[in-house]
Design a binder for these strands. Structure first.
Lengths: 237, 237
DNA sequence: TAGTGGTCTAGACCACTAC
DNA sequence: TAGTGGTCTAGACCACTAC
C-alpha cells in the first residue's frame, strides 16, 4: 500500500472516530505533512482520495472541511459492482445461485456487432441466466461475449461466477464498464423467470465491459426485479 | 487553465484525429515531458485526466494504450447533471418549462429530517414541479430544501431554473450529489401529471445535493417517464 | 534485464479566500 | 494582507511487465 493511501486511511479513521468532527477544518496540509513525515504533495494525494469518497472538501484559500456523509454509502457504490453479484452478496452473507436458461454460440446481429465492435463473422456466446439471491429470483441476465476472448466457457462456470473464471483462470484484466440504467415494463419472459406481476416494472442495466487492453468483453442487459435493487451514484464537483 | 489540463487537451485532440490510433501506445511519459517542456508528474496528471475519461489505460511496466471508446459518451455522463435539466437540454436546443403543482413551506417529517440532517423545527420548502421538454411531460419532481439556505424563493424562480438562481443569485457552491436510481410503479399522481398509462413504470432518481461547505441543500425524488430518459454511468478500474 | 509507469520529496510560485 | 490549497519542477527510487 502506498504512503498516501496509508495516510488517507488514518485520516478516514479520525473522521469516523470524530477526532475530526463534521464541519470542522482538517489541519492544514503543511501540518499534516509534518506529522506524517511526508511531503505536501503526498498529503494532497491522500486528501484527494478522501475528496473522491466525498468525505472532505478542500478549498483553496480556506482549508479543508469534513463533510457530512455517512460511511455506509461506500458499500452501495457501483465501483465494485462488475466484479459480479457473487462478490457483492458474499459480503452480506447471502447465497447466490444461477439457472442457465440459454447457453448458445451464434453470430452477432448488427446491434451486438456495434456494441462489441466486432464483425458479423466473429462468433459470440449468447447466455441467458437467472440469478437467485437467497433462493429468490433477482436478476435475469442477457449476456453476449466474443468467443475468441473467452474460450472454453462451460455451463458449470455459468452456474458459478463468470467473473471468478475470467479473473482467476483466464487472467483477464478489467478496465471498467459503461452502463445505462433505465426503467422498463416487464415482458412475459421477465414475468415467468423473475416471478413478477404483469404490472411490475423492471430496472434494466445495460452494460459494456472493457478490458485493460481496450478490448470489449461483454455486452449485457440485466433485468432486475424492481423491488429488490437500486443503483447508487456519487457525483462530485 | 492549468498546464496539465492543456496537455490533456492536446493529447485528447491527437486521439480524436487518430494521430494516436486506438490500441496504439502513447509516447512514454518522459518523451511527452520533453515535448511539452513539463515534468513527468505534470504529464502523469494529464494522463490521469484522460484515464478518468476512459480514453487511455496506463499500466506500469508496459506503457499507456489508447482505448476504444467513443467520445460521445462524455455528454451522456451524469457528471454535469445536477446543474439542472435546463442546462442539459439547452445543449440539444430543446425547450424546458415547468408547472408548479405545489409550493409550500412546512416542517420536515422524520424521513426528510434524516435526509437533510436538520431538526423538526427547521422549516423546509416542499415543491412539486412538473418539467416539460418540448411541451411533453418529462419529470415530476418532489423537492425539499431548508428555508434558511434558500431565502426568498418564489414561484417565478421555480418556473425557470432553480439552479441558475442558486448559483448566480445566491452564489451557492455545489460540491456534489448522491443519487439512488430505481424503478417503480407509477401511481395516480404520476399518471395524471406525466400523462402516462397505468401500466407504465417510472424511473425514480432520489438525490441529496451537497454544498462545498458541507451543508445539505436538497433532497428530492425525480420521477421520470420511463420512455424518455435513461441514466448513464462510467465505472473505471 | 531493460524499459515502463507509480510514488515520493523539498522547495518554489501562484490563486483564491476572508478579513 | 495573511493564510490556505493548487500546481509545478528535477531528480530519485521502486514495482511491474515482457522478453
Amino acid at each position: 500500500m502506498t504512503k498516501y493511501e496509508q495516510i488517507a486511511d488514518i485520516i478516514r479513521e479520525r473522521i469516523k472516530k470524530n477526532e475530526y468532527p463534521v464541519h470542522s477544518q482538517l489541519p492544514k496540509q503543511s501540518l499534516l505533512a509534518e506529522e506524517f513525515s511526508a511531503s505536501r504533495e503526498t498529503i494532497k494525494k491522500a486528501i484527494d482520495l478522501l475528496t473522491m469518497e466525498g468525505l472532505v472538501y478542500a478549498q483553496r484559500g480556506s482549508g479543508t472541511v469534513v463533510l457530512n456523509r455517512p460511511f455506509s454509502q461506500k458499500e452501495a457504490s457501483p465501483a465494485t459492482e462488475y466484479y459480479g453479484l457473487t462478490a457483492l452478496m458474499e459480503k452480506e452473507e447471502r447465497s447466490v445461485d444461477s439457472d442457465i436458461i440459454l447457453f448458445d454460440v451464434t453470430f452477432p446481429n448488427q446491434h451486438i456487432q456495434e456494441k462489441l465492435h466486432i464483425t458479423a463473422t466473429q462468433a459470440v456466446y449468447h447466455i441467458i441466466r437467472l440469478r437467485r439471491v437467497d433462493n429468490q429470483p433477482y436478476i435475469l441476465e442477457h449476456i453476449y461475449m466474443p468467443v475468441h476472448l473467452v474460450p472454453h466457457l462451460t455451463e458449470d462456470i455459468l452456474k458459478q461466477s463468470i467473473y471468478d473464471y475470467l479473473k482467476n483462470e483466464l487472467d483477464l484484466k478489467f478496465a471498467g464498464a459503461y452502463r445505462m440504467i433505465q426503467a422498463d415494463k416487464s415482458d412475459s419472459f421477465d414475468q415467468t423467470y423473475l416471478n413478477c406481476e404483469v404490472t411490475d416494472p423492471i430496472l434494466e442495466v445495460e452494460q459494456v465491459v472493457y478490458l485493460k487492453n481496450g478490448q470489449l468483453l461483454e455486452y449485457s442487459r440485466s433485468r432486475n426485479r424492481f423491488d429488490v435493487r437500486g443503483y447508487s451514484v456519487l457525483d462530485l464537483q
